[in-house]
Design a protein around this nucleic acid. Sequence first.
RNA 1: GGAGAGGUGGCAGAGUGGUUGAAUGCGGCGGUCUCGAAAACCGUUAUACCCGUAAGGGUAUCGAGAGUUCGAAUCUCUCCCUCUCCGCCA
Length: 428
Amino acid sequence: MLDIKRIRENPDQIRHGIANKHEKDRLDELLALDARRRAIIGDVETLKNTRNVVSQQIAQRKKGGENADAQIAEMKGVSDAVASLDAELRAVEEQIADITLYIPNMTHPSVPVGHSAAENVEVRRWVPEGVAGLNADAAFPQLDHIELGKRLDVLDFERGTKLSGSGFALYMGKGATLERALINFMIDLHITTHGYTEVFPPFVVNAASMRGTGQLPKMAEDMYHCEDEDLYLIPTAEVPITNIYRDEIMQGSALPLSLCGYSACFRREAGSYGKQTKGFLRVHQFNKVEMVKFSAPETSYDELEKLVRDAEDVLQALNIPYRVLLLCSGDTSFASAKTYDIEVWSPGENAWLEASSCSCFEDFQARRAGIRFRRDPHSKPEFVHTLNGSGLATSRLMVSLLECNQTVDGKIMVPEALRRYTGFDVID
RNA sequence: GGAGAGGUGGCAGAGUGGUUGAAUGCGGCGGUCUCGAAAACCGUUAUACCCGUAAGGGUAUCGAGAGUUCGAAUCUCUCCCUCUCCGCCA
């Protein structure tokens, strides 16, 4: 959510920002409502002031045994006027909220303006020696993760579908162990060498939390919803972890605060038919370790760079080839001001797969969620800047991990760094 | 699922329908005292919005909403949430 004052004072800038993200522009309507709102407030507060003053006088007169019928009659009219103005004000404010909740965050000046993924900018890539399709020819035919998973009996997409429907994976044997090892490895790396505090959040949250991080109202169709309780399955641990401090005022000395946690992630992926859907490429439930930061405004972009490096560290430790993209405005999500995607290499698909998305939201989420901080015990509360990034999602990572480490005889070598977590060196 | 209790400031906890934005205590901040600290004492300590260059002024907020009233933290109704006990259960 943007500050209404900022919109009022820089309408052209906001108009550009909305256009850059290809969202609907309802600014004229909004500005008219805003003007109406302030006019009503001026009127109604004057009336309320008279009411308060005269009510005091009535109390005084009654105390002194005087008659106050004239004042009481007068105030009856005032109260009626207040009631009708208040009703109109509420209606106007509702309309304002309806519009502002759909205004996207403005992108940072360093974000290239563009329409689609084609205009994203690769900022760097990290590729170890001998990667098939990138800096070497394949020495043998590269199997994809589905084939590998089936042959080694570690991934069973057919039975996952039987259990829950398409888009639900079933890990078996060493595949299940590898998944668990990966999660533990990533969390340990972040909490021991990157300074994060571990969190284990609920996987189901209320509507207020979803509104706080921006999933609601816009993304309602993409989420699993429990009707009876009006609760939502989280699409990412960003939601519960960012909302930990919703409607709170943090101490400035606590910033920047870095949290990280694992969660299962649930996404309906409504309307994604026809996109890459096989195997792990697009699933309704996957595992992810999420990093979340709360920062003072002046350091948030430094924190974003660190966040990306923290995610990259995971991939380098696992020897997985990747590239980092700076997303163009049109590909940057609704709530984000600047986003880097990290894509891992899939020899089986001969393509890059998005495995992480690291974003700075500036105060966009903080405004919605009411997350503030005080620089000093006496200073005014200010909104924090929030950031988050996957560190990382295991499903796409698993694709790359299996495919990049396959051997000519169809086994998979476990990366060195993971072995103390898996307890085995090879899947065969 | 059954029965009960309760939601007031950072926390604890008062509050006959009329200077109650709200007593008191704790905590926080500033100060006095001290070589320094503790203790004690004094002072101070909510947020949002509107008008205003500012100084300042105004309005709202005691879980949420509606009602009664000239006037509601206080009375009525509805809803939400939390807690306790019983039942069930990983």
